[in-house]
């Protein structure tokens, strides 16, 4: 029987350079640094950092060539969905009306937050299971169609487990969320 588990994370350290990279900035001026600090302060403590996941046997029965290649040498996979929660979307919606520069910065913060969450989760799983993991692979990469998102949502029961929903146009809400398949490398 395959069960779906939930993990919730507290504070994950920020990677400022990554945030600025997402905002399209390589050498920030004083004003941009101030803006970043202001936005980080304003979004402090609003991240829900939830992940739901299951571990499944994998027998190479996948039509996507790119994913099959990614999963070479794996007979188990972790399927997971992660979200930083809806509060950041609130800030983005609010400031996209009132201050697009802040909205842009919150977008960048969100992008960095969800990546950091995924990294934290994968590192922890790797330690917990004492295995090496393949790079994360998400729908829309290579030849893995976006449509697969629907199946992932059904299997992981994302709305109930972590409050993550799927729109008609296959967009996720909260927007700063990721679903991915991670191969567990077989041991030799």
């Amino acid at each position: 029987m395959n069960n779906i588990y939930v993990k919730v994370y507290g504070d994950i350290p920020y990677n400022y350079r990554e945030i600025l990279r997402y905002a399209g900035v390589t050498a920030p001026s004083g004003e941009i640094k101030d803006l970043l600090e202001e936005c980080i302060a304003e979004s402090d403590g609003i991240f829900q950092n939830k992940v739901c996941y299951g571990i499944f046997d994998y027998g190479g029965q996948i039509t996507s060539v790119a994913l099959s290649k990614n999963l070479e040498g794996c007979s188990r996979v972790i399927l997971f969905a992660a979200t930083v929660g809806i509060q950041l979307d609130r800030l983005i919606v609010k400031y996209s009306k009132l201050s697009p520069s802040k909205a842009l910065m919150f977008q960048a913060i969100g992008a960095e937050r969800i990546e950091s969450l995924c990294n934290t989760f994968c590192n922890e799983m790797s330690k917990e299971l004492d295995v090496r993991l393949k790079p994360r692979f998400s729908v829309g990469y290579g030849d893995l169609p976006l449509e697969v998102q629907k199946d992932i949502f059904r299997v992981l029961d994302c709305p109930r487990k972590i409050g993550l929903t799927l729109n008609d146009s296959l967009l996720m809400s909260p927007t700063k969320s990721v679903t991915a398949i991670v191969g567990i490398e077989d041991e030799f």
Binding site: I86, V93, P159, T165, L166, N167, S169, L171, S173
Partner: peptide, 14 residues
């Protein structure tokens, strides 16, 4: 009756 599984506007498309 449980949730619809969809997010209402303005954060979703429902």
């Amino acid at each position: 009756i449980g949730p619809s599984g969809k997010m209402l506007k303005p954060y979703g498309d429902f």
